[in-house]
Design a protein around this nucleic acid. Structure first.
Lengths: 201, 201
DNA sequence: CACGCTATTTGAACGGTGTTAAGATTGGCC
DNA sequence: GGCCAATCTTAACACCGTTCAAATAGCGTG
């Protein structure tokens, strides 16, 4: 039977739903959309999604997973452009923060999910940890992560806004270097830390 | 007519709804509850809430407002126990972060709301800003705020966990002092910054 | 090529949600 | 004491996530 526009079997409904959901998140906010809406946008009935995701929450979890690894990749690539550890870490921070500013709702969704169903690779946290190890500051990753994450969160939530768009890079740089230099004297001991990511390796 | 248990007019339905919603948030998460549930818990029909809040979202906004000013008060009181600016700022950071750890869902709701309908007093950000002014670091409030906020957010979201409960205070102290000392050399210039709070004064 | 098996999708239905409108009840004020 | 505005209820609406049986499509096997 001739069925050009709407074949009964969708090519790859799973990623089509993820794409639609991501775009809805981008335009309407983390929770300003419904599963039914995403299904309709893909041209499929509401219940079709349930053969690819156990629930709406599972879709959101999968989307978070996809975004986190996208951020991880961006962060890894950005750091690869430099040689000295300081600049590499600054590049990580800038990329991390800029993502939050450029795509706030998507960033919020990515980090708003409690437990990822599968290990995320590469995870931005791990990229940062690898760099800090080279500076013998491995135990303090979480402090630098917190600083970056806080700046990103304030920007993503609109609690903080720069007049000058270029200020993001400047200030991310300043914050990262401030924490690094402020930590330089401290030899630890660092606390034992757990995270959703370190737990699963 | 005798009507002891359930008078037709509730005493103060507005704060009763806020209390119920806060407790629901605490036990079931930021979004794991409904307006109908909160109404039922207070012993009132679902539509009664609409005489005190324009929508569920307005309730959440009002709740966020209440919590933010509670955090502001806690932060102000904590800083008042010390004299030197450094310790005062550390106390602010510790209180801010500990709130996030102790009451994660409520903390998330408080900061997850886009625009507060009325100025928040005292706002934690303003308390911090006042202290930094005394150190001639007024332009850098947002960097210290970011660091504190990031540590708080990671703990509230469960992305970071300390094995030792006492570690929170130690690490918040360490982070705040690291940023302060790392910033000490920098004279600026600081960027022009806007926030949901600075905008409305 | 036909058959049947499995994955995929549909359609209809369920309970629960936020929200609205019209009517009942109440407390306070003249 | 009687009216008025505020408060609350009841009933209804459209929409939501989710489930289940039935319809459809693609694919390997005979």
């Amino acid at each position: 039977m001739l069925r050009l526009a709407v074949p009964y079997h969708h090519g790859d409904l799973r990623v089509a739903l993820l794409d639609a959901a991501e775009e809805l998140v981008r335009s309407r906010g983390v929770d300003g959309w419904s599963l039914r809406e995403a299904s309709a946008q893909v041209g499929v009935s509401p219940s079709a999604a349930y053969h690819h995701f156990a629930s709406r929450d599972a879709l959101v979890r999968a989307l978070s997973h996809r975004i986190l690894s996208r951020i991880g990749t961006a962060v890894r690539d950005a750091s690869a452009a430099f040689d000295d550890p300081g600049s590499r870490i600054v590049a990580i921070g800038q990329t991390y923060v800029r993502f939050a500013l450029d795509d706030p709702a998507v960033w919020r969704l990515a980090f708003g999910v409690d437990d990822p169903e599968a290990p995320i690779s590469p995870h931005p946290h791990d990229i940062l940890a690898a760099e800090l190890d080279r500076l013998d500051l491995g135990g303090a990753v979480f402090l630098l992560w917190a600083a970056m994450h806080g700046l990103a969160a304030l920007l993503a939530d609109g609690l903080l806004r720069f007049d000058d768009p270029a200020a993001v890079d400047v200030e991310a740089d300043r914050l990262v270097r401030a924490v690094l230099s402020g930590l330089a004297g401290q030899p630890g001991p660092w606390p034992t830390v757990r995270s959703a990511y370190t737990d699963r390796q």
